[in-house]
Simulated scan of single mutants.
Amino acid sequence: MPDLDLPRQGYDIIFSNSLLHHLLDPSALWKTLLKYAGPGARIALMDLLRPHSKQQAQALLNTYAGNEPEIKRVFGLVIDFDTRLPIDEVAA
């Protein structure tokens, strides 16, 4: 994650949605949060959780994208399964 040039430090609220799994080094997000969060800041992080198996990923895809065209379903399965981080990869 490149060094950010935000307008200030000490933000009261920081929200991140589906960024963490895109980072090669998840610690970059934690370092950025420490740098820019003010005292008592509220931080909300949401991200994807990798299914335990390709079969579980396929079942989720069937449930939530069952009516999508085949190309979208195949692409979604590969992207979703291969990019989500397991808890132990981000818990440090």
Score class of each variant (00 low, 15 high):
residue 25 D to R: 06
residue 2 P to C: 00
residue 66 G to L: 14
residue 37 A to N: 02
residue 63 T to E: 15
residue 81 F to Y: 15
residue 76 G to R: 01
residue 54 K to W: 15
residue 89 E to S: 10
residue 88 D to P: 01
residue 76 G to I: 12
residue 43 I to L: 12
residue 12 D to T: 05
residue 79 I to G: 01
residue 55 Q to H: 09
residue 1 M to R: 02
residue 77 L to C: 12
residue 51 P to M: 04
residue 67 N to M: 08
residue 68 E to N: 10
residue 9 Q to F: 05
residue 7 P to M: 10
residue 3 D to E: 11
residue 54 K to R: 15
residue 36 Y to G: 04
residue 7 P to Q: 10
residue 34 L to W: 09
residue 52 H to T: 05
residue 44 A to E: 09
residue 55 Q to P: 01
residue 75 F to N: 10
residue 54 K to A: 14
residue 69 P to E: 09
residue 90 V to R: 11
residue 19 L to G: 04
residue 85 L to R: 11
residue 56 Q to D: 15
residue 61 L to M: 15
residue 2 P to V: 00
residue 33 L to W: 07
residue 41 A to Y: 12
residue 75 F to G: 03
residue 63 T to C: 12
residue 83 T to N: 12
residue 43 I to H: 03
residue 21 H to C: 01
residue 32 T to F: 02
residue 54 K to G: 01
residue 4 L to M: 07
residue 87 I to M: 11
residue 48 L to E: 12
residue 58 Q to D: 09
residue 62 N to Y: 00
residue 40 G to T: 14
residue 14 I to D: 03
residue 7 P to V: 10
residue 1 M to Y: 00
residue 80 D to E: 06
residue 80 D to R: 07
residue 75 F to H: 10
residue 34 L to Q: 12
residue 89 E to N: 07
residue 36 Y to T: 00
residue 72 K to C: 06
residue 82 D to Q: 07
residue 74 V to D: 09
residue 91 A to S: 13
residue 69 P to N: 10
residue 14 I to G: 01
residue 16 S to H: 00
residue 13 I to T: 12
residue 87 I to Q: 03
residue 49 L to W: 03
residue 85 L to G: 02
residue 64 Y to T: 04
residue 55 Q to R: 13
residue 7 P to T: 05
residue 23 L to Q: 00
residue 83 T to R: 15
residue 5 D to P: 00
residue 82 D to H: 06
residue 40 G to D: 15
residue 25 D to Y: 03
residue 22 H to N: 07
residue 17 N to H: 09
residue 31 K to N: 14
residue 55 Q to D: 11
residue 88 D to A: 13
residue 80 D to L: 08
residue 74 V to A: 11
residue 18 S to A: 08
residue 48 L to F: 10
residue 22 H to E: 07
residue 57 A to P: 04
residue 34 L to T: 08
residue 43 I to T: 04
residue 67 N to I: 05
residue 70 E to W: 08
residue 3 D to R: 09
residue 36 Y to M: 04
residue 13 I to R: 14
residue 44 A to D: 05
residue 23 L to Y: 03
residue 38 G to L: 11
residue 2 P to M: 01
residue 14 I to R: 02
residue 38 G to Q: 13
residue 30 W to N: 06
residue 27 S to Y: 07
residue 19 L to S: 01
residue 67 N to L: 12
residue 51 P to Q: 00
residue 6 L to W: 12
residue 78 V to L: 12
residue 77 L to G: 06
residue 87 I to Y: 09
residue 79 I to N: 14
residue 23 L to T: 08
residue 60 L to V: 02
residue 86 P to H: 12
residue 13 I to N: 08
residue 28 A to P: 00
residue 51 P to A: 09
residue 64 Y to S: 12
residue 88 D to N: 13
residue 69 P to T: 13
residue 44 A to M: 13
residue 68 E to K: 11
residue 52 H to R: 15
residue 37 A to I: 04
residue 57 A to Y: 09
residue 74 V to R: 11
residue 55 Q to W: 06
residue 56 Q to E: 15
residue 28 A to E: 07
residue 14 I to E: 06
residue 42 R to V: 10
residue 49 L to E: 14
residue 33 L to E: 02
residue 92 A to L: 09
residue 90 V to E: 05
residue 42 R to T: 12
residue 29 L to S: 01
residue 35 K to T: 14
residue 74 V to K: 13
residue 80 D to T: 13
residue 89 E to G: 03
residue 69 P to G: 03
residue 86 P to C: 04
residue 2 P to D: 08
residue 28 A to L: 10
residue 88 D to W: 08
residue 5 D to S: 04
residue 70 E to M: 09
